[in-house]
Design a protein around this nucleic acid. Structure first.
Length: 886
DNA sequence: CGATCCCGCCACATT
DNA sequence: AATGTGGCGGGATCG
């Protein structure tokens, strides 16, 4: 399109165009972005016909860089084209004469072609939904603007919304960091919680009346909590941006975006009409519903909605009320989030982490920045990366419509699904193009299970998640009472067998992840550090795969959970689970029925301290995530923060029990990643669903190596995606993982050795590993269909490993299934009993400041065993997990 | 004609 | 002061 536009321009005064553009750009960063100007020039190249063409040619020749960029553009173009039909027009134009062009020009660029939604899709197409942890993508606004051929202002519109969801974070002036959707689910969860606090009542009203929105809207709009809540949100966000000051008005677009999303998440129907949203968002003067103000608000909402639509989080629908048909948007993104957190913030930010270096907010950003450096390293690793299998093509249409009430919805859903699918495909392509780049750790992981998982997930999962809580609730409830039953019921897919009897299985998986992660991490770091050799590097690269593995396991768990029952939590949870479940139920309930609002949370918290803790953890994680979307990137740094993060992680881990906190060690090494660790936290809580999360988090942790890990956090989303890709990746992962183990533990020396060993250190761990592998293997074999190619590749890479893994696998799978408990036990033993928990708690508290939520932590806190940590992160995790399990 | 929403002025923030 | 950000709303398009 850009080209075309230019072409249009060109006819008259091609030369001028350039100058013009420059003027527009204001010469911003000409140095950095020679690109912009160049691009203009470049475009001309394509048009031989134009008189100016020659000039263009010359220019282009002059700037090779430009060409490269052009090439890049072209790469993306396919995507664009696929989505849109503009191409023809463009072609025509090109074909046509200048004179003709002028006339056509105007027409051609129909407004739609310039729509923010389209632009946003193009923008998103440029980046992987689930970027590899290692890669940290930096986005240059100027560059993107020029590439997409739009004014910078428009890019801000997009970026601001993306930022509100933590898909990107601002690193510096004109520079944004791409995080992808890894943290999305967590962010949404946080928003949901905040939304319940703020808009719970509203929701209720809406439900009652859907139509009547006014009243309810006005009534509730703002309440005490509201302001506070906002603050919370803001803070969380702020963290990222800058703890210190929220400059300017506070970026209404960002806040509006979050609030808008919150409305969806809180809404029972998941449908929000524009006018209602506008009214609610007009905070202040509810009464004064200034027409003009209202109108402006609606305009902004359209902007936001366009971006959210591009993200496949919402879709446009129409609500026919008494009065008539009103424009509205329906949430089509994930609805349930594993754990429900309750508490609000803990200001992680400034509290003062030891490092002092970063002020709260800054941390994330910093991390990103730092990440870059690290990235480099990682990048090198990546390059080698063996596995790429990552694809998440998988399947699934993003979401199956769960609500059927309206035919329209169904059709719309399909559309969405299509869109999503496209997006996925795009991602896949992207990955294919840049194997090293993206493997979403979380995604990949799933390998073995992937088959199962995928199939199950695509069907079962979605429904569950999106559909609603009900399913969740059941599980929870069931779990509390009779988990097995729940599991059984859910085991639709097939794997149920594993879980059927014991929902707990999930834990094991999570535990696996944890273990893997720990191992992986160590290896990675160590490899680079210790070995430095090429070989080592390779190992490192492999390590990333390992990470994937780690991630995978969780996936498996999830799958299982999903199949069998969501309840996975039950197992480990024991006590907690029930509490959580309850909380979940409550939370769920709101969704289905009325919004409990705050009350709900409180009850949950009260019921189960553990749950509260979990929530707290989440929050912490969220904050971090928010603050440091780039987390993955950040992994590298060692700053004290990391420690904190580690602590947090531990914390989270503790909660779940499952997660041992292997991460710590790696954290120490990598530091940077750790911070993200919090992600791990996620894992814990939620029962059934949580299993997913957990896994992810675990993965992430492992992935930490790759930076990506930090992001991993995103529980749900990734999970979904994962399935497809997961399989392929898995195998690879496994192999790599093996190597990685070495490094991690003391024995690192024996890298080669097998993963088991490496893992080391933990006998208990080893088993876990196997399990994972096993899982993977099966998947690969079983579900080659998903990614035959990928799988194949991985296999190749892994082959050596695979052999081992295979054996292991067999064992594992059975074991895993059956042994959740066992695993735990093992872990415990292996883990140092004492410290992990204790340690974490302390740190956590310091960090988060949410002692209350943590409550339990105190117990954990006991004493920190830094030493212990050093000894073996894995062990710690195990320990932690065990403790948490308790 | 109402729904959408592009465009870009202009103010505030940051450098 | 220059430049980065982004609020804001006129008015063009779409349906």
């Amino acid at each position: 399109e850009n080209i075309f536009d230019r072409s249009r321009m060109a006819p008259k005064t091609p030369i001028k165009n350039e100058p013009v553009d420059l003027s527009k750009q204001k010469g911003c960063t000409p140095e950095r972005n020679p690109i912009t100007p160049v691009k203009l020039i470049d475009r001309p190249q394509p048009d031989p016909w134009t008189p100016t063409a020659n000039l263009k040619m010359l220019v282009s020749a002059a700037s090779p860089d430009m060409r490269d960029r052009e090439k890049k553009k072209e790469l993306f173009r396919p995507i664009e084209n696929s989505e849109q039909n503009d191409v023809p027009d463009l072609l025509q134009y090109d074909m046509v004469d200048d004179s003709t062009i002028d006339e056509f020009e105007k027409q051609r660029p129909s407004r739609k072609q310039k729509s923010l939604g389209l632009l946003c899709r193009k923008f998103l197409a440029r980046y992987p939904s689930y970027p590899l942890s290692t890669e940290k993508t930096t986005i240059s606004l100027d560059e993107v603007a020029s590439i997409l051929g739009v004014g910078r202002r428009r890019i801000y519109d997009i970026v601001n919304v993306l930022e509100s969801l933590h898909l990107v974070s601002r690193v510096a002036k004109n520079q944004y960091c791409w995080h992808g959707r890894h943290n999305l689910s967590q962010t949404l969860k946080t928003l949901q919680e905040a939304g319940e606090l703020q808009y719970g009542e509203l929701v209720t009203f809406q439900h009652k009346e859907q139509d009547m929105e006014y009243k309810s809207g006005e009534q509730k709009k703002e309440t005490m909590p509201d302001s506070q809540d906002r603050a919370l949100l803001d803070f969380s966000e702020a963290d990222c941006t800058s703890a210190s000051a929220n400059s300017r008005k506070d970026k209404s677009l960002r806040i509006m975006s979050q609030k808008f999303v919150m409305l969806f998440l809180v809404s029972k129907t998941k449908i929000v009409t524009l006018d209602i949203a506008a009214k609610i968002l007009i905070e202040e003067t509810q009464d004064t519903v200034d027409h003009s103000k209202f109108k402006t608000k609606v305009r902004r909402l359209y902007d936001i909605a366009n971006v959210l639509t591009s993200l496949c989080l919402i879709k446009k629908v129409h609500v026919t009320e008494e009065r008539g048909r009103k424009p509205a948007f329906k949430w089509i993104g994930p609805v349930e989030f594993p754990g429900k957190t309750d508490e609000p913030r803990g200001h992680s930010p400034t509290s003062g982490p030891p490092s002092g270096a970063r002020r709260g907010a800054g941390a994330p950003c910093h991390i990103c920045a730092t990440g870059k450096q690290r990235f480099t390293r990682h990048a090198s690793f990546n390059g080698a990366q063996p596995c790429e299998g990552t694809k998440r093509k998988v399947s699934s249409e993003p979401s199956s419509p769960r609500e059927e009430r309206q035919d329209e919805y169904c059709s719309e859903m399909r559309n969405l699904a299509t869109v999503c699918r496209q997006k996925i495909e795009e991602d896949t392509r992207y990955v294919a193009r840049n194997p090293s780049v993206t493997l979403p750790p979380s995604l990949l992981p799933v390998p073995g299970d992937s088959d199962i998982c995928i199939s199950a997930l695509s069907q079962a999962v979605f429904p569950v998640v999106q559909a609603d809580v009900p399913s969740l609730l059941l599980p929870k409830v069931v779990s509390s009472q009779a988990p097995s039953a729940a599991a059984a019921s859910k085991t639709e897919n097939g794997k149920p067998t594993l879980l059927p009897s014991q929902p707990f299985l999930c834990f094991p998986s999570s535990s696996f992840l944890m273990l893997c992660g720990g191992l992986q991490e160590n290896p990675l770091r160590e490899n680079p550090l210790a070995a430095g050799d090429v070989g080592t590097r390779s190992a490192e690269e492999k390590a990333s795969p390992l990470e994937a593995q780690g991630a995978v396991p969780p996936a498996n768990c999830q799958k299982r959970s999903s199949h069998t029952c969501v309840s996975p939590p039950a197992p480990a949870d024991d006590e907690e689970p029930a509490a959580k479940k309850q909380s979940m139920e409550q939370s769920d309930v709101p969704l289905s029925l009325v919004v409990p609002k705050k009350p709900v949370e409180s009850p949950t918290a009260g019921s189960a301290p553990g749950s509260s803790c979990a929530s707290a953890v989440h929050l912490g994680a969220c904050h971090r995530d928010l603050s440091s979307p780039a987390a993955p990137e950040t992994a590298d740094k060692k700053s004290p923060k990391l420690l904190d993060s580690q602590e947090q992680e531990k914390w989270s881990e503790n909660k779940d029990l499952d997660e041992p906190s292997p991460g710590k060690d790696h954290i120490a090494k990598e530091n940077a990643n750790q911070p993200f660790v919090p992600q791990y936290l996620y894992v814990q809580p939620t029962a059934g669903l949580s299993s997913f999360n957990f896994l992810f988090s675990a993965n992430q942790a492992p992935s930490a190596i790759g930076l990506a890990a930090s992001q991993l956090p995103s529980l749900s989303v990734p999970c979904v995606m994962v399935p497809s890709a997961a399989l392929a990746s898995f195998p690879l992962v496994c192999s790599p993982a093996i190597p990685s183990p070495l490094s991690p533990v003391p024995d690192g020396s024996s890298a080669a050795a097998s993963m088991n060993i490496s893992m080391s250190g933990l006998a208990s761990t080893t088993p876990v590993f196997i399990g994972t592998t096993a899982v993977v293997t099966p998947n690969a074999s079983s579900s080659p269909s998903v990614d035959p190619q990928q799988t194949a590749q991985p296999a190749v890479h892994l082959s050596p490993v695979l052999a081992r893994s295979c054996s292991a696998v067999k064992l594992d799978s059975p074991v895993c299934m059956g042994h959740p408990l066992t695993l735990l036990k093992l872990q415990q033993p292996s883990s140092t009993p004492v410290t992990p928990k204790s340690i974490r708690p302390a740190r956590h508290e310091a960090f988060f400041k949410t002692p209350g939520s943590l409550g339990d932590p105190g117990a954990w806190k006991k004493s920190e065993g830094n030493q212990t940590r050093n000894a073996s992160s894995v062990q710690r995790r195990l320990e932690i997990s065990s403790t948490s399990a308790d």
